[in-house]
Design a protein around this nucleic acid. Structure first.
Lengths: 195, 195
DNA sequence: GCACCTATTATTAGCTACTAATAATTGTAA
DNA sequence: TTACAATTATTAGTAGCTAATAATAGGTGC
């Protein structure tokens, strides 16, 4: 595979290979780089790379990423605003993908649909800041990854800073979700009050 | 730890322990169950369970393993699962960050809180696939970026494949969100029906 | 030339966590 | 008492190491 590599080149190569495949033993690395097993070991020691078994344990203990919080990306949530009449209604579209769905079934996770509905509902309120207060959600049919969702929101009632918004989400003419959201328009004072 | 277990009890115990912690060596199992290493090995052979190193490799390579949480892989859960009793209750934590919030106010967008509640609720259902049907959400107080949310979910009722899960989310002892979610446990048939 | 140094390779002993095979021991039931 | 299962022990061999020591090759400086 390799020949006549300098020490630094070889060490760099080992690092690279191991980052791609931590399952390589010293013996296999020795064959790959055409150096003796002992040299490879020395390289590992110099670079502070643990032995294969420990590397595998590390991978095994990290794969089910224990404490990493997977957050939703903005683009994934909001979808695309198609049409909007502030204070009245709006339409948004979201193309669902595999990573929004359960691996096992391909069914899109419910909070993605809610996120679409919620952000659309907030968007159509004609105010600086809007917060969701109460919501009633109803999931009618499962949505499968790949399907495109069309969300329509409408302000059903408005008393003072309180808005009742109803959202209907469809895919292929079928209604898959409906929700009623009570949204409050808020000014900056609230922020101070509650902190 | 254990004493005077029958062969079948012991083998059952070994299976259980290894499903929870595949990193246990035969020696440690022998100490746990108070039997000799050779007996443990015979048990593994009879049950077709590979040695520790091979188990670790399996985990590392992400080969399908029956997890404690059935319906969701850990990465798929929003927030960090702290404690769970399948079919009963569970606790999850989410550290909120700026990119979960509105720039203007620093208030966390409501769908992040719902996502935490929803994925926790689904996690505690002891089934292969779980889907949200109906939900009633109530946002009590605004949450500010940086605050840590603690979500507690409890199965309030369970009739057949229909579960009523109540979720309470708090930060600094204050309740910021409550929700009642109706979740359905589903088998694979649904998938075929609706596609 | 020689001393010195680095890089590389070899060798040996010991470790963990096994497999595989064989054998001995214990207990219990026909 | 014999037969059998369950358990434990023993031995040889394996992979993939650590750790320590030693040998060898090649170059640099003087």
């Amino acid at each position: 595979m390799f020949q006549n590599l300098s020490k630094s080149e070889r060490q760099k190569g080992i690092k690279e290979y191991l980052s791609k495949d931590p399952f390589l033993s010293d013996k296999k690395l020795a064959e790959l780089f055409n150096f003796s097993v002992q040299t490879i070991r020395l390289d590992r020691l110099e670079m502070g790379i643990p032995e294969m078994r420990k590397r595998i344990v590390q991978v095994a203990k990290n794969t089910p990423s224990t404490d990493k919080v997977k957050s939703l990306k903005k683009e994934e949530i909001i979808g695309e605003l198609i049409d909007i009449e502030l204070g009245k209604n709006g339409i948004a579209i979201l193309k669902t993908t595999k990573d929004m769905a359960f691996n096992k079934t391909g069914i899109v996770r419910s909070h993605y649909i809610f996120s679409l509905a919620d952000s659309l509902a907030i968007s159509i309120i004609d105010t600086e800041v809007a917060l969701t207060g109460i919501a009633r959600l109803s999931y009618k049919k499962p949505v499968y990854a790949g399907q495109t969702l069309v969300a329509k929101a409408r302000v059903a009632r408005n008393r003072g800073n309180k808005y009742l918004v109803s959202v209907h989400v469809k895919t292929d003419q079928k209604e898959v979700f409906t929700g009623k959201l009570v949204i409050f328009s808020v000014n900056d004072k609230i922020k101070k009050e509650k902190t």
